[in-house]
Design a protein around this nucleic acid. Structure first.
Lengths: 414, 414
DNA sequence: ACTATTTCGTCATGGCGGTTTACAAATTAG
DNA sequence: CTAATTTGTAAACCGCCATGACGAAATAGT
């Protein structure tokens, strides 16, 4: 049915240079003509995906190749089912109208999954970025052992994949967002305190026919922000919270993972070095002031279900205790973020996850603190539009991006 | 004399992907056959430079091309004067011995310069990494206006370039290290408190025939560590101090610069949020505890010439006040670094610049603090072998690396 | 209406670059 | 002294993009 493009390839290691450059489409391919071809296929996909329906000529001028070269690339991509010809454009411009090309809505799909503290969610996103299938199951997962939870998740995945297939899509990969630290192998959950999981190899538990990736929910949330936010910056800090406080560092349009994959542990940045002891061994970590548990205690509330919603409701009602607790949490966040901003000089800071819903009461003190402690203009703080949807969407989109980044790798699997 | 390889090229913008990949040789070249050729020339240079004298066959297996292809690449590089044929290898292995290739010692040279608070230095480094010429001038530059200082520097550059040319080298570029914040244009010194320079365009003041780059001394120090340190990690934090406290963040073998180029401002990370006021507007910044001025005051010493040497001498003599001051500075550094390490998860932290000389008295409290506040194994802290030579060497080597990264760009200029 | 102009997509040709294949040269093993 | 191994190079080949020319399909001008 679909024509194969090229065989799979080994990634060549890049050698260091003195400038961190943005990660580009398929930049790790071998420098041979085949690699060049694959990179150019990727560039065509990126251009069409980013700039909407485009004619071959428009693609050519976007990526700097000739119309003839683009023609052959597009042919190959259409034969592989990754691109679709929409038909002639209806232009007011002089000259023969081009034939509009769009990313296929019937080709590969990215399957995203999220393991939350009290829910599971799975969705399928097509190459166009549309959510085509979705399934959610509520129920507390805290303390449940990984086995049953993953089994339930697999069932949801099956459901969503089935639905997607009925729409003419086929799964190109599965990406799972978890609330915890994930090793660089992108399979092992090293520590997820909220679930009480430790060193759990999800790769072994989730036997799928397609590639699997596991990552921190804050990371996926940041990627969603990067890809789905309109004119999102290429360097920013995405702060997210769900009991623990995680951050994702985006540099030049790519995630900063750290040596072990643990980068972004904002929750254990010291805020008051002589403050209360923390489970991590330190004192006065940010989590002691802005973590969910700490905020609830300061507000005089008990732990329980959907505590974030409760906090937001109470604050909206004008509860002084809650407001003060959130104000103080904002201050602590501001202090920690001052350090982070000084270190990274990001273009902006984005509040996502649970923090997005509480932003109205956190932001004033947070921004005041950041502003007060910064010499020049303070780093702008914004709130994620995606909110709690971020990690799930980011996960699914990460699979889609992988296809766009190397269409040839996926074209043979249709 | 030397054969031109290709014309200069415009840099194509890379599109974002979801993984920060290491910056590689010539990775921003256009995806056309010419670009491929240039990247492969770069890969040959890198291989020969990194792995010592290599035969064509060895290069081929290193970079994954065929011997035939490498032969033509090497021919071109030899004609351009960037590579040299050393003659037949003398091996114990069976088979015809290869002909050893080495990076040329008579081609382009990188000129590095350093503007210190009380000295100026310039050196020339050949492609092999050898320092071939050097000139230093002592004398306080603090408070002098940029004009005369740069004039003096230009004179030193002229001297060093002359000496290098007498050795058969030609300058491929000039890189200047300054103790302050440099804008992303790599020309303008935005703020250098120790020199009292503000918004100074060194590009206008330093008219040279070859490309000019200006950067923070901490950044160049980090690059020196990255390139010259034996098996240096690809992700680390390089902390340096000369009155202010700067850090350079190295991610995947490349510098993290930040949106405005101000990344690494470790000195203004809050250590004690209610501490003494700082010039930056904040309170309890690291500089208030570990900055040179603060340490001198805590030690009961007056500011003056070579205060770092004085501190080291007194500490070595056993001066209790000085030791306590350094101990406390180490603690503050440890607190700030805990935050940075949590955020970035680097492979190690390297103490460079003035801190290297004081390390024996800073390290114990610094490491204790870092260890105490970290859950798992603490991030290892090491001391730069390069010490105060780092920035100057890093600057010169940055020019050399630029040549290795795109030999074709430089080959026509011989 | 009819022609000139502009732009799009495609085809044939050519140049460039790495691969494949073959071979001579230089060394070691037996 | 021969067989085996490895190196470097040359010739033929293939893949990929550029160039230039062409028909097709729209607008602009008369």
């Amino acid at each position: 049915m679909t024509a194969p493009l090229h065989e799979a390839h080994p990634d060549g290691p890049g050698r260091p240079s003195h400038e961190a450059r943005p990660a580009g489409p398929g930049r790790a391919l071998p420098d041979t003509q085949q690699g060049m071809r694959r990179r150019n296929l990727a560039r065509v996909m990126h251009a069409v995906s980013a700039e909407g329906p485009l004619s071959r000529a428009a693609v050519a001028s976007h990526i700097g190749l000739t119309r003839a070269a683009v023609s052959t690339l597009v042919d190959e991509l259409i034969r592989s089912g990754l691109l679709e010809e929409l038909g002639p454009e209806r232009p007011g411009r002089v000259g023969r109208p081009g034939s509009a090309l769009a990313v296929s809505g019937h080709g590969p799909a990215g399957i995203g999954a999220e393991v939350g503290v009290d829910h599971l969610a799975v969705c399928a996103v097509d190459l166009r970025g549309q959510v085509r299938a979705k399934a959610v199951r509520h129920g507390a997962n805290r303390g449940r052992s990984p086995g049953p939870v993953v089994e339930e998740l697999t069932e949801l995945v099956r459901q969503v994949v089935g639905e997607a297939e009925r729409e003419g899509l086929w799964p190109a990969g599965l990406a799972v967002a978890v609330p915890g630290l994930v090793a660089r192998d992108a399979r092992t959950v090293v520590r997820a305190p909220n679930l009480d999981w430790h060193d759990t190899d999800l790769g072994a538990l989730l036997p799928t026919d397609f590639p699997l990736t596991v990552d921190n929910e804050a990371n996926f949330g940041a990627l969603a922000e990067l890809w789905l936010g309109k004119d999102a910056p290429l360097d920013f800090l995405h702060v997210s919270a769900e009991i623990g406080i995680g951050a994702a560092v985006v540099v030049a349009g790519g995630l900063l993972r750290g040596t072990r994959g643990f980068a972004g542990e904002l929750g254990h940045v010291p805020v008051r070095p002589d403050g209360p002891e923390c489970a991590c061994g330190g004192r006065g970590c940010l989590e002691q002031y802005a973590g969910e548990e700490a905020v609830l205690r300061a507000a005089g509330l008990e732990p329980g279900e959907d505590r974030v919603g409760l906090l937001a409701d109470r604050a909206a009602e004008g509860d002084e205790d809650v407001r003060r607790a959130l104000h103080d949490a904002g201050t602590a966040l501001g202090i920690a973020l001052t350090g982070a901003v000084n270190l990274l000089d990001p273009e902006s800071v984005v509040l996502g996850g649970a923090l997005a819903g509480l932003a109205p009461w956190l932001l004033p003190s947070l921004e005041a603190e950041l502003d007060r402690r910064t010499a020049g203009p303070a780093c702008p703080v914004s709130v994620s539009r995606l909110g709690s949807e971020g990690p799930l969407l980011g996960a699914a989109h990460s699979v889609v991006r992988a296809v766009l980044d190397d269409p040839a790798a996926v074209a043979g699997r249709a």
